[in-house]
C-alpha cells in the first residue's frame, strides 16, 4: 500500500486489479465472462458462457489471457478474463446430428408440437429480428431494416 499525492491521498494498492490490468496492457483487451474448464489441448482453456447450457464454449490460448479475476457475486466460480483483442477464439458448439443435417441440407420445415397440436415450422427463425443498432466510439448506427421481422 502506498500514499499517492496525485490521487488526493487515496490509498492505492499496487496489487489491486486495476494496477495489475494496467501493467498487463489491458487497454488492448476485451473482457469475457463465464466459467473456465480445461481445454482440449495443452496451453488452452475453455470458457463456458453459462452453466445451464454446456453445449457452447470458446477455447482461448492461455498466452492470450492478459488477466483474470473471480466474480464473487456469482458464487459458482464465474470469472472475468481479459483477452487480447486480436486473440483467435475457437468456438465449440455441440449440436444434435439431426438438427445439423436439417440446417445444412436446407430442409424447409421441422416438426414442432404445442398444445397437443402437431405442426411443422421453419428452423432458426428466432434469429430474425425487428432491427439492429450498433455503436462505435463516436456514434451509433441507426436501426436498420434488413432485419425486419418478416418471413422471407
Amino acid at each position: 500500500m502506498v500514499e499517492n499525492s496525485a490521487t488526493g491521498g487515496v490509498r492505492q494498492d499496487n496489487d489491486s486489479l486495476v494496477a495489475r490490468l494496467l501493467e498487463a496492457g489491458s487497454e488492448d483487451a476485451v473482457t469475457l465472462t463465464g466459467y473456465v474448464g480445461p481445454g482440449s489441448r495443452e496451453g488452452y482453456v475453455r470458457l463456458f458462457p453459462g452453466l445451464t447450457d454446456m453445449s457452447k464454449s470458446i477455447e482461448i490460448a492461455q498466452s492470450d489471457i492478459v488477466e483474470s479475476v473471480e466474480l464473487p457475486k456469482s458464487g459458482l466460480g464465474a470469472i472475468a478474463l481479459w483477452v487480447r483483442r486480436d486473440a483467435e477464439l475457437h468456438h465449440h458448439v455441440v449440436e444434435r446430428a439431426e438438427s445439423y443435417a436439417a440446417r445444412t441440407t436446407g430442409r424447409a420445415l421441422e416438426p414442432a408440437r404445442r398444445g397437443e397440436l402437431r405442426m411443422m415450422v421453419r428452423s432458426h427463425v428466432r434469429d430474425v429480428c425487428t432491427c439492429e443498432i450498433y455503436c462505435d466510439g463516436t456514434g451509433c448506427m441507426p436501426c436498420t431494416s434488413n432485419c425486419l421481422a418478416r418471413a422471407q
Binding site: C129, C140, M141
Partner: peptide, 15 residues
C-alpha cells in the same frame, strides 16, 4: 447492452 458492447450489431428481437 448496445452501448456497452460495440463489437456486435445488436438486433432487436421483440416487436
Amino acid at each position: 447492452l448496445a452501448a456497452a458492447d460495440h463489437t456486435v450489431a445488436w438486433a432487436m428481437y421483440s416487436l
